[in-house]
């Protein structure tokens, strides 16, 4: 099947995923534009994580299509290839390489030739070093660059992971609950950082924290039972009867 050319960066159409008879995604359709930031909300089991799995190639849909950047059929590719296309993913619990230094974490994420033998022969050059410095600066981990990632605090790990995503230079960033387990100050800083990132690339944020979503001030999509329940500005979505019923509570 040839993928249709669309002006959107990410285009999900009618995507259905079932596990053992359970429909995790039910004919989900979603479109993200270039340089758009979108917040995804919804109750547990609404299919947020499964949606990310489909986009990043971890789960294969039974039906529907997922097209990236106009021409790439995501359902036919594996995780690494999709990542190389320019989709970065941040996990819910911060996942960094604990036995590597902060600096090496960023180094591994830097956009470069990913083939094993290139890795074996690669030497760090000046451009790479400057990129690493800039990124560490941006996620405020410059002082910790020689520490092992395992020694960082929870919030620092979240930021390191975001720094690694930026190092990948993706076109689209998927961010799963970035504010979970953060202090209020860290949460606000994270919102700032994400807004800043969204100036140059598309960002999809899955979040439960409504304050955080409000801080982001972007278009919101509410998922429920694997499909889109409502979409629009936060005020409109949160006024929606069904959204209140299944998610926000009365």
């Amino acid at each position: 099947m040839s993928a249709p050319t669309t002006p959107t960066l990410l285009y999900l159409d009618n995507v259905t995923v079932t596990f053992d008879g359970f429909r995790a995604l039910n004919a989900l359709s979603l479109a993200i534009d270039h340089h758009e930031m979108r917040a995804i909300i919804g109750p547990n089991g609404a299919g947020k994580t499964t949606m990310m799995d489909v986009i990043t190639g971890k789960a294969k849909p039974d039906d529907g299509q997922a097209v990236f950047d106009g021409s790439h059929d995501l359902t036919a590719l594996d995780e690494a290839t999709i990542a190389e296309l320019g989709i970065g993913r941040k996990f819910q619990t911060p996942t960094v390489f604990e036995h590597h230094t902060v600096e090496d974490n960023i180094l591994l994420a830097l956009k470069a030739d990913r083939r094993p033998f290139s890795a074996l022969l690669s030497r760090r050059d000046k451009v790479e070093r400057e990129r690493i410095d800039a990124l560490l600066e941006r996620v405020r981990l410059n002082r910790h660059r020689h520490r092992l990632a395992a020694e960082l605090s929870h919030g620092q790990k979240q930021w390191l992971e975001i720094g690694m995503l930026l190092a990948q230079e993706p076109k689209l960033l998927l961010v799963d609950e970035p504010a979970a387990g953060m202090t209020d100050q860290e949460t606000a800083d994270t919102a700032d950082l994400l807004r800043d990132i969204a100036k140059t690339r598309a960002v999809v944020v899955v979040e439960h924290d409504m304050t955080f979503v409000r801080d982001l001030g972007v278009k919101v999509t509410c998922l429920h039972e694997g499909s889109v329940l409502a979409e629009g500005p936060l005020d409109v979505v949160s006024a929606n009867e069904r959204v209140i019923e299944v998610y926000l509570g009365r």
Binding site: D78, E79, A83, E84, T95, V96, A109, R114
Partner: peptide, 11 residues
């Protein structure tokens, strides 16, 4: 962190 590595684009 095998899947992290994979999501960074390493085969």
């Amino acid at each position: 962190a095998e899947s992290r590595t994979r999501f960074l684009g390493y085969h």
